[in-house]
């Protein structure tokens, strides 16, 4: 076994269990993500992959087990939890841009309110980030005036403005028209190249092949397989993964 240079993994889930009523949505999840690693989580609907993603910044609570980020255990509530969430960027399926604020205000809100940056500093950085994701000229519009792909890129800029240690993507392209998917995936791919630690729940197998260090396959609330994209797509070991891949890759 090779020694990992970074020491403690950035994100560690151990023995995590969660129920929605009777439904055991996460079953004994063990998962570690190293600094700079890009992990793509795939699996059929209802496999628990979105729930897994949402437990990492505690938008979903867990019944037992432990989640640590950068060595620190996730607090249950209150100011400590808020502080920790500030270091974990999140991009949602439905964008969730603040509807009553302009694009620029969406990106500056966190830095001003949470990081206590000055408005001028926050706006300067926000404009850089909006340029980087290709929507700089939309800064003064409100979200409803943008296409879905543009809104999702703003959402990525909003998360990046907090300088997060890790970024969570919860099916970021599932609500998009097909022609807008690539503009979002391109931004995510360039983020991955720049060394951002990312956990991406997605159905985009092309992105998984291109950008992931590791693919985690979930089914029925369990992690069934965890392998490099190359191994997973060419030589899956579990029957469930073989079945899943045969259904989605054949058309």
């Amino acid at each position: 076994m090779t020694e990992r240079p970074a020491g403690e993994p950035l994100v560690r889930l151990s023995g995590v269990n969660k129920w929605f009523g009777e439904l055991h949505v996460l079953q004994d999840i063990d998962l570690t993500i190293d600094r700079g690693e890009v992990v793509v989580v795939i699996g059929p609907s209802g496999s628990g992959k979105s729930t897994l993603c949402r437990t990492i910044n505690r938008l979903e609570s867990i019944e037992n087990g432990e989640i640590t980020i950068d060595g620190q255990r996730l607090p249950e509530e209150g100011k400590e939890l808020a502080r920790l969430r500030a270091d974990v960027g999140m991009v949602f399926q439905s964008f969730n841009l603040f509807a009553h604020k302009t694009v620029l205000e969406n990106v500056t809100l966190g830095p001003i309110k949470v990081r206590k940056q000055s408005k001028a500093d926050a706006e300067k950085r926000a404009r850089e980030l909006l340029d980087r994701v290709g929507v700089g000229h939309q800064a003064d519009k409100v979200p409803a005036q943008l296409s879905g792909g543009q809104q999702q890129r703003v959402a990525i800029a909003r998360a990046l403005a907090m300088d997060p240690k890790v970024m969570l993507f919860d099916e970021p392209t599932s609500a998009l028209d097909p022609e807008m998917i690539n503009e979002v995936l391109d931004v995510m791919t360039s983020l991955a190249r720049d060394g951002m630690t990312m956990i991406v729940v997605t159905h985009e197998m092309g992105f998984a092949r291109r950008a992931a260090n590791r693919v985690v396959f979930m089914d029925g609330g369990r992690i069934v397989e965890s392998a490099t994209p190359e191994e997973f797509f060419t030589n899956p070991t579990s029957d469930r993964a073989k079945d899943f891949l045969s259904k989605i890759l054949n058309h």
Partner: peptide, 24 residues
Amino acid sequence: GQAEAARALGLTFRQSLGTVVLPQ
């Protein structure tokens, strides 16, 4: 999702209520 996005940014409950939820 509006409150979730606010909390995910690290806003406290009171901040997300005051700056994101109540204005809407």
